[in-house]
Amino acid sequence: MTEELHDVRLSVNGVAHDARVPARRLLSDALRHDLGLTGTHVGCEHGVCGACTVLVDGRPMRSCLMFAVSAVDAEITTVEGLTEEDGSLGPVQQAFAECHGLQCGFCTPGFLTTITAGLRENPTPTHEECRDMIAGNLCRCTGYQNIVKAVERAAELVSTSSTTGGEA
């Protein structure tokens, strides 16, 4: 018996994509395999590590826990969608680069999307709020200190860009 396929239109990073997927295709798999957006990484496949985090209507979601058919009427933002319109790094990406917030980089896309959403909700977090913001994302390499510094630096960059007309 063959699995029934469903036609879906996913809005990802402001672009509509059509795909034909099984009903149980995970959003992470649809992004990576059907749309070729490989920036979203799949780690634990149980929603624990946060590597697969994307923004769904601006909120961080574990794409390994969501079916692609459930995302049809949502706006999805992946790590690829966090760059500026001119292709330069967005403020959270820039902060990670400046503060050495990554080592192997596997967990980084999930951190970047999580922090982007967190700074939209709280653009001036305290040190403790920065730590809390990333509490649901796991990293096996960095020890988190530089990631926390990157969140603090990203808040500065977002604050600066908002006074000059930019956005997180």
Score class of each variant (00 low, 15 high):
residue 93 Q to E: 07
residue 79 V to H: 11
residue 90 G to V: 07
residue 100 H to S: 05
residue 78 T to E: 02
residue 93 Q to R: 07
residue 79 V to A: 08
residue 79 V to M: 11
residue 92 V to Q: 02
residue 72 V to K: 11
residue 76 I to A: 01
residue 82 L to Q: 09
residue 82 L to E: 04
residue 89 L to M: 14
residue 71 A to C: 09
residue 93 Q to N: 08
residue 78 T to G: 03
residue 86 D to G: 09
residue 70 S to N: 14
residue 96 F to W: 11
residue 81 G to W: 08
residue 61 M to T: 14
residue 65 L to R: 07
residue 97 A to M: 02
residue 62 R to H: 14
residue 88 S to M: 09
residue 81 G to Q: 10
residue 77 T to E: 12
residue 69 V to P: 13
residue 99 C to P: 01
residue 100 H to C: 00
residue 77 T to S: 10
residue 75 E to Q: 12
residue 94 Q to K: 14
residue 62 R to E: 03
residue 98 E to I: 05
residue 69 V to W: 10
residue 92 V to M: 02
residue 73 D to L: 05
residue 75 E to T: 12
residue 69 V to C: 13
residue 98 E to P: 06
residue 61 M to Q: 12
residue 69 V to E: 14
residue 80 E to C: 05
residue 97 A to T: 00
residue 83 T to W: 13
residue 80 E to G: 04
residue 66 M to P: 03
residue 98 E to V: 05
residue 93 Q to A: 08
residue 87 G to L: 09
residue 95 A to Q: 03
residue 85 E to A: 15
residue 79 V to F: 08
residue 95 A to W: 00
residue 87 G to Q: 09
residue 81 G to A: 06
residue 75 E to Y: 03
residue 99 C to T: 00
residue 69 V to Q: 13
residue 99 C to N: 01
residue 87 G to A: 07
residue 95 A to D: 01
residue 82 L to F: 08
residue 62 R to Q: 12
residue 96 F to H: 01
residue 89 L to K: 04
residue 87 G to H: 06
residue 85 E to S: 15
residue 75 E to D: 15
residue 68 A to C: 07
residue 83 T to E: 12
residue 65 L to W: 02
residue 78 T to A: 01
residue 72 V to I: 13
residue 74 A to E: 14
residue 97 A to E: 04
residue 61 M to D: 01
residue 92 V to I: 08
residue 78 T to H: 05
residue 95 A to N: 02
residue 86 D to N: 14
residue 63 S to R: 03
residue 97 A to V: 10
residue 85 E to F: 09
residue 87 G to T: 08
residue 80 E to V: 03
residue 96 F to Q: 00
residue 81 G to L: 08
residue 92 V to H: 02
residue 64 C to G: 03
residue 85 E to D: 15
residue 92 V to N: 03
residue 70 S to W: 11
residue 65 L to V: 01
residue 72 V to T: 15
residue 63 S to I: 04
residue 61 M to F: 05
residue 85 E to T: 12
